[in-house]
Design a protein around this nucleic acid. Structure first.
Lengths: 206, 206
DNA sequence: GACATCGCTTAACGCTGTAAAGTATGATGA
DNA sequence: TCATCATACTTTACAGCGTTAAGCGATGTC
């Protein structure tokens, strides 16, 4: 009886179709500018059909953000796997993070710049242990900082706090460039990113 | 004929009443959760009356943000006027900025964390010369960094770029603590702020 | 052939920001 | 003093939003 299997497949296919439409629209126009009705129109279904596959608009977003940040994790994994001294590796990882955010501004904004009051509908262990959506990426940061501290003397010895502070720093770079890209007369972006990263890493060392 | 003057006064009074209501509601519930109807209800006027005093919801917000950041400027002015070596002054100024953001999260969010596509309805000279709403505050940063560079050798000599990078850093601290206050298992906040600021300033010096 | 289930749609609710039209009040010019 | 006009405000309305409830046709089961 392959019928039920076919149906399962078709249902999954529509789910993917919805995700694809939402992904594209969110990325292009930003989360708030995209309505459920517009997503529905794009896939040529009625708006309510989406609710048969996703609890609400937020869940749709969450799914996409998770996807996107698995992509970030992959990029960071590459850096971690590559050669170089720990400090240099850390710097390169931070740079990858910033570049990633700048090339996925809408995803970045929705994941890290808007308060998800009840994010994946379970606030849960998973959230707190894995540090939410960007959790895997943060793990890489923890590792990188740990390795730097193991190599030579640093000003701080608290790996967790230092990693968090570093995250804050690069988040600032990323988010401010995203929101104020056009409104503020920035110096050369690459220079700014370099100064911020170099400064933060330098500040970490003794 | 004091009549027209009385009318002008009354009109200005209502304008202030609207601003007061909006200020309070925005600060308490956040910009997006506050509707024009709710503001109107609070002041016991019809919603459309607000439009006789402000072009739209965004202008209302803008007015309030400007106010708020004049308050920040005052606080920074105090720091600048106080005694201490330039590096310490810079650190203290940055700290004031972060604390200010954390104690006005909704204002901070709307000014620096949401894209104002057409902010005060004139994109204008003023915007570009004064760096927008937080412009005066940024001037203090420029001055502080300039003074540090004048005192001793620094890694960078570009005052503008360095100041911008510093701004990004403390913006990261502020904004991430605002959006992810509850969602992420932060280390001690004060420690984090200190690490980030100390690191950034240290990284600035040679 | 009756019944249930599934996948989807239509219609609706209560909310939003905002524009157009209407109304009352009070000053002004003849 | 009376008509006119401006001002300040309200009522009504529109188009859009996220979301829910009810309905409907096709398919699978007994």
């Amino acid at each position: 009886m392959g019928v039920t299997e076919r149906k399962v497949r078709e249902k999954a296919a529509l789910r993917q179709e919805i995700l694809a439409a939402a992904r594209e629209l969110f990325a292009k126009h930003g989360y708030e500018s995209v309505s459920m009705r517009k997503i529905a129109e794009r896939i040529e279904y009625s708006p309510t059909t989406i609710y048969l596959h996703f609890r609400d608009k937020g869940e749709l977003l969450n799914e996409i953000c998770t996807e996107t940040f698995q992509l970030l994790s992959k990029k960071l994994a590459k850096v971690v796997a590559s050669e170089g001294d720990p400090v240099d590796l850390l710097r390169r990882g931070l740079r990858v993070y910033v570049d990633f955010g700048l090339s996925h501004p809408n995803h970045y904004r929705t994941t890290f710049m808007t308060p998800h009051q009840h994010p994946p509908h379970t606030v849960s262990l998973d959230q707190k242990i894995n540090f939410g959506t960007g959790g895997q990426a943060f793990q890489y940061l923890l590792d990188a900082v740990g390795r730097v501290m193991a190599t030579g003397p640093t000003r701080q010895t608290d790996v967790m706090a230092t990693s968090q502070a570093l995250w804050m720093t690069i988040h600032g770079v990323t988010s401010l460039l995203i929101t104020k890209e056009l409104e503020f007369p920035w110096s050369d972006k690459n220079l700014l990113i370099d100064i911020a990263i170099a400064g933060a890493v330098k500040g970490l060392l003794r």
